[in-house]
Design a protein around this nucleic acid. Sequence first.
DNA 1: CTGTTAGCGCGTTCAC
DNA 2: GTGAACGCGCTAACAG
Lengths: 333, 333
Amino acid sequence: MAERNTKRVTSADVARMAGVSRATVSYVLNDTPHQTISAGTRGRVLDAAASLGYAPSAAARTLRTGRSDVVLCLLPDWPIGSEVGALLTHLSGALARRGLTLAVHPASREDRPISELWKVLTPAAVLAFEEFSFAEITAMRAAGVALVVALVGPARPEPRELHLSQRLVGRLQAEHLAGLGHTRLGYAYPDDDRLRYFADPRLAGTREGCVDQGLAQPEVRTVPLDPATAAEAVTAWRAAGVTAVCAYNDEVAMAVLAGVRRAGLNAPVDLAVIGVDDIPVARLAEPPLTTVTTDQAAVAVHLAGTVEAAIAGRPAPAPVPADVVRVVRRESA
Amino acid sequence: MAERNTKRVTSADVARMAGVSRATVSYVLNDTPHQTISAGTRGRVLDAAASLGYAPSAAARTLRTGRSDVVLCLLPDWPIGSEVGALLTHLSGALARRGLTLAVHPASREDRPISELWKVLTPAAVLAFEEFSFAEITAMRAAGVALVVALVGPARPEPRELHLSQRLVGRLQAEHLAGLGHTRLGYAYPDDDRLRYFADPRLAGTREGCVDQGLAQPEVRTVPLDPATAAEAVTAWRAAGVTAVCAYNDEVAMAVLAGVRRAGLNAPVDLAVIGVDDIPVARLAEPPLTTVTTDQAAVAVHLAGTVEAAIAGRPAPAPVPADVVRVVRRESA
DNA sequence: CTGTTAGCGCGTTCAC
DNA sequence: GTGAACGCGCTAACAG
């Protein structure tokens, strides 16, 4: 109640109020194992801490332990969609429940090199959408960062954390279209090269789905967000016998729809289209866009579990289940 | 070069290598005023620091000075668009050039209260999109946070940092439509109540623009992202003699366009529409959407200047110029 | 068992 | 230009 802060409340203040030493305060507040503190003392310390509004100084703790409770997430300089925004929001909550704080850092060319960043924040873990160099990884590890992950990127020794859900997305698109009776699929690949680390696993998933459903491999075409160019792609697909296309995301899907109209055709009768993300304008498309959504909350929980396990030195949790992705059926497919 | 890190490099290492005391290292590296260090010593310290790859521990510095170089930006739990994403990216760069590090924290209900957050990070400044309580503000100030700003929100004593650019956006929409000969405007207000802190200043700008251009006040209608409901709004506008509408953003604008089609009409002949943001799918709309964009880099630089000034105790810089906003002309208006 | 004393981690800054 | 203390929480060693 009495929160008439003027200066920072330190553990010394709590100790004084509870009539114990600072060490005791620390033991109580951290539930230190192998230290037995009487219930009475414990209660007095907890009460004092609460009534003073005590929050330990992260700086001091970090200085002492060599590692902060911050999980640093480096954003790429390429456009990230609302999907990633939602993921981060959920990740923030999931980490908070584990006593970790998410700090997101939007990259920018004018920025200092990332080494500056982690040296400055001494994070417990670093997540990134872009690749780290080997030198960077070893340097961070040496500096005490428990987990360093590139969420996406070329699948090397082990697959990336976010690959699985991306693959599931692509697979589900193919399954949905196959279920509608389509046998010849197209794949609308994004024009921005920087998106390939997301696009490749999605396309791989679609390929897998085609194999499973006994369909031929999809006809892949790059589709920029431009009606005229998209119309050319549509014409080419039609000439190849394609009757339905999986798009990298809803934006590309809407470009395909614009291309269909521009070509004087109609979706889904002339060409069915399915996107990814269910962005707000997907339902405003002409026709409203069928799309695949991901349960970002579930992915976030998995990611948080992976981070926590790495920090505690425990093995990583089981991968996300296949039902994190789901089709939102509208008129376009 | 020799960056074979194994442990953290500390100022003691630099001091040893340069053959001076730690105090001297600190003075050299911080360019401390009123401390005269000979050029020779200076050079040796700088060389040692560089060759060791020395980066001061932020934790120790924060512990000592009571304030970190982190600028904390709290995101709201309501959907933020790519506009804000771009702003943050530029802000990150602009702050970095001033020696400050941006840490973005996506809010979430499951999160701990924000007091936990700033107590833990001891940021130099806190920016937020939501309102702080008076108690929170005083507590943060007392804890050493130099600047606490709610970027948007009800304009109280002084207007919010981001109000001006929002007003300029709304004003420019009205001016553009007036320039096209329209005399009776509509305003498409977003359905999500949490967006009103952005929507209100935009609408206020449109009202100002109408006054300046000698037009009647705009006919305001709430437009959800749903074609059927949007069609009703379109019909009502038409009945009221409205020939052009300013939309809160591109998504709402695309809803209006969907409503126009649903009502069996055509844009821009039956109703002209102008959006805000120039999201990627705006050019894919039917017809392609005319919209207003903001130079987020300029806004970010202004914001960074405000933060820097507050930390240094200097007066705030001049507000952003009117030309941070610009019309992207396409077919819808 | 219960709790205390003491020193560390690292950059900053005052006094000599 | 240097020695030394400080900021604050953690934890090994130790006393009652």
